[in-house]
Simulated scan of single mutants.
Amino acid sequence: MDIYQYIGFALAVVVGITLGLIGSGGSILSVPILVYIIGVEPTLATAYSLFVVGTTALFGGIQKAKQQLVDFKKVLLFGIPTVITVFITRKIIVPAIPEIVWSHSSFTLHKSVLTMLVFAVVMIMASYRMIKPLKEAIVNDDDKLNLVAIGFQGVLIGLVAGFVGAGGGFLIIPALLFLAKTPMKMAVGTSLFIVSAQSLIGFLGDLGHQTIDWHLLLIFTSCSIIGVFIGNYLSKIISGDKLKTLFGWFVLLMGIYIISKELL
C-alpha cells in the first residue's frame, strides 16, 4: 500500500462528510480521488464509486430516518424508475461502448477519456446546482404530484448515475423540492435513500464485467462511512447551505481541471 492510497483513504472520509452534510456530492469527489490519486481505471472507478456512495448513503439515510427526515413514499416514486435505468445502463449500455469511441488522424477518443469528460460535464452541472440557491417549494397538502415528470426525472438520473458512477443527488434534491414539494431537510434524507438504492443496484450491473479489488474498495468505503457519521453530526451545528455553495465552486474548478487534463 503506497502513500497515494493512504491519501485516497483520508479523502474518502471527506466523501462521507459531504454526503452527510448536504445529501449529495459524494461521487463528485470519489471518482476523481479513485482515478487521479489511487490510480483506478476510469470505467472501473465509476463502478467503485457506485458501491462507495451507495453504501455510505445507506448509512446516512438510516441516520436521517431515525430523525424522521425520510419520505419513503417519494423514495419509491423516484427510486423505481431510477434503479431500473441505472441497472440497464451499467449492465448493457456501458459494456457496449467500444474502447476506441472515435478516431481521427490526429486524435483518438478512448472510452476512459470519454468517461472522464462526461463526468467533468456532470461536475459542472452539479456545481451550478450547488452554487445557485435553491428556494424551497411551498408545500400544500392539496398539491398533486406530477408522476410523469417524476418518472422522466428518475430515468434521467438513472442514465447519469449509470454512466459516470454519480449518485445523482444534485439532480434528486431539486426534483424532490420542486416536483415532489418536499421540505429541504426531508429532501436531503430522502435523497440519501434514493442514491443508495440506485447506486448499489447499478453496481450489481457491473459484476461479471469488472474485476473488483474488494480489499481496496472495502477500505475506501469504510472510510467514507466514518465520514458520513461525522457529516450527520456536523449538519446539526453547521449551515449546509453555505457549505454547499463553497463546495459548488470547488466542484466547478475540479470539472474544468479534469477537462483540461484529459484534452491537453
Rank of each mutant, 00 (worst) to 15 (best):
G26H: 08
G26M: 05
I28P: 09
I28G: 03
S30E: 02
S30L: 08
V31C: 06
V31L: 14
P32C: 09
I33V: 11
L34V: 07
L34F: 06
I37D: 07
I38L: 13
I38K: 04
I38S: 02
G39M: 03
G39E: 00
T43G: 03
A45M: 10
Y48H: 10
F51H: 03
V52N: 08
T55A: 13
T56C: 04
T56D: 06
L58D: 00
L58A: 12
L58I: 06
F59R: 00
F59Q: 00
G60H: 08
G61K: 14
K64F: 14
K64E: 08
A65L: 13
L69K: 15
L69N: 15
V70N: 02
D71W: 04
F72K: 04
K74T: 12
K74S: 12
V75W: 02
L76A: 13
L76Q: 00
L76H: 01
L77G: 03
G79W: 05
I80M: 05
I80T: 13
P81G: 10
P81L: 08
T82D: 07
V83Y: 10
I84T: 11
T85R: 07
V86M: 14
F87E: 12
I88H: 01
I92M: 12
I93R: 03
P95W: 01
A96V: 10
I97L: 15
E99N: 15
I100C: 04
I100D: 08
V101Y: 11
W102V: 12
W102H: 13
H104C: 13
H104G: 15
H104D: 15
S105H: 15
S106L: 14
T108P: 07
L109N: 05
K111G: 01
S112P: 01
V113I: 13
